[in-house]
Design a protein around this nucleic acid. Sequence first.
DNA 1: CAGTGGTCTAGACCACACT
DNA 2: GTGTGGTCTAGACCACTGC
Lengths: 269, 269
Amino acid sequence: MATLPSPLFTNASSAPSMGADASGMGGLTPAFSPLYQQIKGLILQSLQSGEWKPGEAIPSEMDLAARFRVSQGTVRKAIDELSAENLVVRRQGKGTFVATHAEQQVQYRFLKLQPDSGNAQSEGPAERTIIDCKRLRASAELARALSLRSGDPVLQVRRVLAFSGVPTILEDLWLPGTPFKGLTAERLSDYHGPMYALFETEFGVRMVRADETIRAVNPDTEQAELLNVPVTAPLLSVERVAYTYNDTPMELRRGLYRTDTHHYRNALS
Amino acid sequence: MATLPSPLFTNASSAPSMGADASGMGGLTPAFSPLYQQIKGLILQSLQSGEWKPGEAIPSEMDLAARFRVSQGTVRKAIDELSAENLVVRRQGKGTFVATHAEQQVQYRFLKLQPDSGNAQSEGPAERTIIDCKRLRASAELARALSLRSGDPVLQVRRVLAFSGVPTILEDLWLPGTPFKGLTAERLSDYHGPMYALFETEFGVRMVRADETIRAVNPDTEQAELLNVPVTAPLLSVERVAYTYNDTPMELRRGLYRTDTHHYRNALS
DNA sequence: CAGTGGTCTAGACCACACT
DNA sequence: GTGTGGTCTAGACCACTGC
């Protein structure tokens, strides 16, 4: 609750040396930014430090304005951006809440695969099967993707998602071992709800954005068997790197999607 | 230049019947919206009526504020949304400009296929070959996609895009015949630059957003030949519906992408 | 009712581009 | 310098939620 005397900088010339470079935006910012950007950075810090937990309300705009000694409008603009980036959710009359992968209307926020008829809601929840979950050492390639060093401990998970009994998605995913210490196949199987929600509640890791690289491929024999398709079946290969705050990569996921009953949906603008 | 006495409605109770429903947002709006949304609608009308052409500057915020009899902040918020939807582009110190597919830093705004190494800029422009361009009648399926009636005249184009001599994209696209009267294979071949830019300058049709449906497929023999791949090669099938203002569909495009040297890139947030 | 986010205003000043 | 968009403020009022 204590309010630190947050150092805010005016746009005047001969600015003082930027204190502690506490910005959550990385250390290479040009040591100059509008006030609302600085406020945004401070709020971001509180989000990532866990001062407010996913699903909880953050202080009201008036409170934050008082805390940072700026006008409500400036706080508002900062929150506007955080809201546009899906880091917080505004609810009129109630407050502003830390975004969460749990209790969200959309079950899987990052999964763009949809049934050809109906929508993701109309089909029941996915039937999940953990095929494998083991610890190993990061290869050079994996280390690069997750910003680790080769040989660092990582967790590898393989699972299948089926809809109406039809295996549709085969996923291999890799997580850095340290933040996810204690994650087991059993924990994954027992948990009902999005995997990213489990990451939030059990390991304090919030996935904030992701990049996907999509290709058309054929499965190998093992993959074909797990998805119950011939090895000649064309499948969607979706490689995802998911990031937490600060653009830190925290997951590499390789998905194989059957697209005979589902399709990948993307909106361009 | 003439300023119509645009009717704006207060949020007071017992609002008058909404005059002429001139809103560009469709006729089913709940007859109530904040001022800046009404302003946005009016600006949208001017955009779609061609009062300001792609690439041109729209009036300054102060001018628009005077024209609509509101404060600059209200106009600003309206333009903020239009900017977020990529309908206009703000340039500090210069003005606000109607977005265009021409003279844009990114050659193809809606094409998410990228070379595996380097970026879209580093590889030269695509080598384009028009395979076919003919007029025909809309099938039921096509009519549905383009909001036409079965049998309405449509234009069908088939072309191949190659990079460094490697045919990579095979596209079939269908356009409503009426707005695109006069479009020929020659016009398409002669034009250098994005196809959507030609649509803007020659036919006054601005593509504003699009939806894509992605699958993994195998090509038929003809497609395989054009892309110089075996019929067993897995390819990305990208079906796109592109919309102009008012959510009017104006193009159906079916692309087959080779993903052995390129990949489809998507950012999630 | 009080508290929250949402809208709107009016005015001041800053940063940038052009001339 | 002038004109543009960009930032920041202070205050008023509206709309929604929940006590």
